[in-house]
Structures are given as structure tokens and as C-alpha cells.
Design a protein around this nucleic acid. Structure first.
Lengths: 331, 331
DNA sequence: CTGAAAGCGCTTACAG
DNA sequence: CTGAAAGCGCTTACAG
């Protein structure tokens, strides 16, 4: 069963008439005489040689593997990030290994350790996240990307979510809405807390505002049920701020199911601006987060950390942008 | 830089007072005396030992790594498949490495070879696919999953796409539509060819049917533009069969952009039944494909192949199901 | 610039 | 049941 007719550097060396270490040097850019290099490169090309990653990471200081933790792969948000990360990583000759919610925290940690990842980009952190903490306990370089953790010993990058919440609130309040509901993400997710904080702040500053909060857990089904419940109350809100786009979609659909017209009877604002949100059938008013950029910066921070392990921690804050579409209207 | 305070099996052996090979045996289920095993397990637990995958795959016959080729990660279709595959793989102690369209065929192949994958599940095959062919040329076990290739030397699993096309046609024709357009997937994709074949067959069997075909490449933007063009022709079709759901969404949105009412002026049928399709705002009539099941069977076929390399090739055909929602109406 | 050698952390026969 | 030893395919000092 051992499919092993693979060409090794020893065979390349033999055929090129050099030592195996010389092959290694041309592969890794060591100093080799031009003639020797050419001869080796020829044989390398002849066999389309690919060095074994297993051997490399066993002997080298680096495995060339970066772990990417993305719990909920079904949020349309993440494919965009994965692609952006892959692009940066690939440019550096690095690979990516995904940890989704198919694994528990313990299993995920075990996986990352067995694989010997050089570092981890963590996108799904929540307060007291067992996986994030265990990763740093094991001395594995980590960056918190998209969701952050205050005081956590790691580089971090996130959007300006407080401003996102404020922008959403300003819009809704300016339209005259005062009976408002906020569909929250999970407790412990920094994005949810910051967006909630920004929104609440503005709502409190505006006289006569009644703000109801319900949990949607950044989950379609949870948010859908929560919004249906909200809409069947005696005096339902006239505006909804959903802390992410997926929950806003759930809200739009729940409203449709309840026969509530958007935006005439109900205004809906999301947050993220996933590509879907621009679809005519959705056309969601939302706050744009620079998804791809967040992912790129996350990877870049990690690469910087690997290059300079003792540099002070960095914390990047990326700007957001209000996007008005057709799911909001005057009260 | 070499983060290497990792505990190795040698240290476990020393602390447990046994040979390193004994540690290896308790790890891999070799025969070990109960007392010895207990002692080793204790030390293993004490350090939460994780064996190095690099060393394992270097020395063993298997790397425990399965390559999964998914070109277009942004199709909401694929997260469902990835999760299903991960689940099966994880149950067998195997891991997954993704190859998306960030890499060219050559780069993808190089990656799979360097990583030493035990096998590959290929979901995005097209006729004369360079990557698929090169993978088998290198003797790497391969299964074609979701999209197949006639006569290709590999296990294959797919939905009954010909029937899918027929079901879509039967529905539209029964509603009385005769001026019909089909938005096709890319030439060379078996799903597109089979769905097209089934649909065409029924259309040809029905007197008075005029079938126009346009290319949508299974891509939102391409399909969107194609449908807008279609709808601005002098006598546009009254019904559209989009060979996948993503293109059907594009069609719904293009119709909205053109002020064409669905389903009153235009009926739209998709194919796949991604979760999105059930949303009230979409509510797409479509043909359901057992996404998760296709993915599972794909992985199972590969595992079977690894266990029995010389077994005859299998070809599984999974049933589809028509799902009537609200994007279709009588002509 | 180049080669001989050690060694990364495991699995797998091979003895006993 | 258990240990000593070889070896997987590389990278990395170390000589020359």
C-alpha cells in the first residue's frame, strides 16, 4: 500500500552527480556554483521533484503550516476571508489548515499540535475561549483576527465595530424610529459587544427611545425564531438592528413570513456587508466591514510575529462604512 | 525560533521506564502488557502527548491527509460538503487539506504531492481536467465526487442529474411554458451536461417548445449579465431553467433589476437546493441534490479504495427530488 | 563552493 | 510482551 515510487533528493543528487546536501542547497537558495546549480535544476525539472513536507517540517524549525480557526463555515462571510488568507499565505510558500466546529476545542488543539503549525489565525474567539487560551499556553504564536479579546496576549486586528454600531443607530434614529430592537450576537464575541455598545450609546442619547434586545447568536435559525417572536408581540419594534448580516437575512425572511412589510412597517439594518447583501432580493442596508482586508492583516500580523517573536503586540483597527440600501425607511 | 519544547515519545518512554517502541505500540494499539500500558498511558496523559504527524507520515505508509479539491469556495453549496467530509474523515482520524482556485492546477498538484496526501476527493472536475489527470498519473488515489468524468479511471459519485433536468422541464412544461431559456453551467462539467441533456430531451418531446440556451458558467455575475440580456430581448422567455441555484439567484435578482415580476411574468427553476433557496425572500423552486450525502459517499469511496486498491471502480448515483416553491407559475 | 554526517520523531520488522 | 536498531527524506552545522 505504501505508494512510494516518489523521487527523493538522494536520487536527484545521484543523477546530478552531487551530494544530497547540494540538492538541498539549490532547493533552499544556499550558495552553489552556477554550473552545479544548473545541472541540479535540470534533474529536478526532469522528475518534477517535490520535496517531502513531512521531512522538512520534521527537521526544520518551521512546518510551513498555518492553522486557521473558523468555527461557523456556513456564514457566507468566511469564504471571502479564507480566500484572502490563502492568497497571502500562498505568496509566502505557506499552507493553511482549517479548524471548524466539527472539532471540539480539545480536538482542535490536538490537531494543531500534531500538525506542528507555525502559528494560528483565530477568527472565532469568544471571551474565555478555551481553544485560544490553550493555543497560547502551548507557546504557539496566535493572532486574533476579526474577533478580539481585551488584554489577550496576542496581535489583534478587527473592524471599528463600535463605530459600526453607532452608524447603524444614527441612521435608524435619524429616520425617526424610537421603538427599536437589537438582535445580538453571542455574549463574549467582541464584535457583538462592540456593535451593541455603539448602538446602545446612541440610543440612550436619544430621548424617547425604547430599545429591546434579543439574542440571535449570529445564527440564522436562532435569529429567525427571535424575530418572529418579536414581531408577534403587541407593539413590535419599527426598526431592527441585527448585529450581523446573516441575522438580518433571517429578520427579512421572518418579516416576510409574518406578513410584515419591509421597509414600510419595519426597517432592518445589518452589519458586515457580505456580497449577498447587495442582491436585489435582499438589498440590505448595512455597515460594511473590510472582510478581505481584515483577513490579510491577520495573516500579515502572524507572519510579522514569526519573524520577530519579541516585538510588542500590535492592535489594528480597520474602518467601517455605512451602506444605505432599501431595507430602511422613515418611521 | 525553533519552538521545540515539545514532548517526544522518547521522553515519554524514559519517564515511563520503557523503550520508545513500546510507547509507539500503546499509541498504535500494538500488543502491550496491561500494566505496562497503564503506566505509559499515565505519562502520556500527564504531558497530553501528541505524536508528530510529520514523523508519522515520514516513516509510515500513510500520511493521514486527504486532499479535497473545491475550486469555487464561494458557492454556498460547498461549506455543506466540507462539513460532511470533515465529519467522516475525523471519525477515521484523518485530516483534510483544501485546494481552491487560489492555486493553479500545477500548484495544486505540487501541493498535494509535497504534502503526501493519501488520496484526493475531487469535486470540481471538468472534461480533460488537467489536475484530475495529473493526480492519477502520479498514482494518487482519486474519487470524483459530485462532478464526474465518463470513462475516467476512478470511483465516482454523483446525483442523478439527468433526472434533475427532466423534473425541471416537466414542471415548467406542465405549467404551459413554451418559450423557455436554459442558463447553462460551464461546458465540461458533467452536472451541467447531464442536467442540460435531461431538460432538452423533455423540451424536444414537447411540440411548440422554443428553447434558448445561454452560458452562466455556474457563476453569479456571469449568469446575472446573461439573464439581463435575455430579458431585454424583444420576446423574452417566460420560463428559465438555471442549472444551479446560484445562477437562479442571479436570475431572480436580474429579473428584479429589470422590473420583471417573478413568477407572474417569469418562472425560474434552479437546481441543487442549497439552504438559501428556502428563504422567504428567495423561495426558489428547484431540484434537490443530496449534498451532504454526496460528500459522504465520496469520502467513503476513497476510504474503500485505500483499503482495497484493486477493487473494481464503483459509480454511485444518488436520487434527486423536485421541490416546488414560489418562483414558478402557469404561463 | 561542496561533501560527509548527524539528527528530527516516529514506525516497523527483528530478536529475544 | 518488550527492547535495540534501522530508516523515512530532509536541513543544518562542520570540515575542507
Amino acid at each position: 500500500m505504501a505508494r512510494r515510487p516518489t523521487v527523493t533528493s538522494v536520487q536527484i543528487a545521484r543523477e546530478a552527480g552531487v551530494a544530497q546536501s547540494t540538492v538541498s542547497r539549490v532547493l533552499n537558495g544556499g550558495s552553489v556554483a552556477p554550473g552545479t546549480r544548473r545541472r541540479v535544476l535540470e534533474v529536478l525539472a526532469k522528475y518534477d521533484f517535490q520535496p517531502s513536507q513531512a521531512a522538512r517540517s520534521l527537521v526544520g524549525a518551521r512546518s510551513g503550516l498555518i492553522g486557521v480557526v473558523i468555527r461557523d463555515l456556513t456564514n457566507p462571510f468566511y469564504p471571502v476571508m479564507i480566500k484572502a488568507m490563502e492568497r497571502v499565505l500562498h505568496g509566502q510558500g505557506l499552507r493553511l489548515t482549517l479548524v471548524t466546529d466539527v472539532l471540539t476545542a480539545e480536538e482542535g488543539l490536538a490537531l494543531l499540535r500534531r500538525e506542528g503549525v507555525d502559528g494560528v489565525v483565530f477568527t472565532s474567539a469568544v471571551a474565555d475561549d478555551p481553544l485560544a487560551h490553550r493555543i497560547v499556553d502551548h507557546g504557539i504564536p496566535l493572532v486574533l483576527c476579526h474577533r478580539t479579546l481585551e488584554g489577550f496576549p496576542a496581535d489583534q486586528v478587527e473592524a471599528d465595530n463600535v463605530t459600526a454600531g453607532r452608524l447603524a443607530a444614527d441612521h435608524v434614529l435619524a429616520l425617526g424610529h424610537r421603538r427599536i430592537a437589537m438582535v445580538r450576537g453571542p455574549a463574549g464575541a467582541s464584535t457583538a459587544e462592540q456593535r451593541g455598545h455603539g448602538f446602545r450609546q446612541r440610543a440612550e442619547d436619544t430621548r424617547g427611545t425604547v430599545l429591546t434586545e434579543v439574542d440571535g447568536s449570529y445564527d440564522y435559525a436562532v435569529a429567525y425564531a427571535a424575530v418572529r417572536a418579536l414581531l408577534s408581540e403587541p407593539s413590535p419594534p419599527t426598526a431592527l438592528f441585527c448585529q450581523n448580516d446573516v441575522m438580518a437575512y433571517a429578520a427579512l425572511n421572518a418579516a416576510a413570513a409574518c406578513g410584515v412589510a419591509v421597509p414600510r412597517e419595519l426597517s432592518v439594518v445589518g452589519c458586515d456587508d457580505v456580497p449577498l447583501s447587495a442582491w436585489e432580493r435582499i438589498d440590505l442596508t448595512t455597515v460594511r466591514q473590510p472582510l478581505a482586508r481584515i483577513a490579510e492583516v491577520g495573516v500579515e500580523l502572524l507572519l510579522g510575529r514569526l519573524a520577530e517573536p519579541d516585538a510588542p503586540y500590535r492592535h489594528e483597527l480597520l474602518p467601517v462604512e455605512f451602506v444605505e440600501r432599501s431595507t430602511t425607511a422613515p418611521a
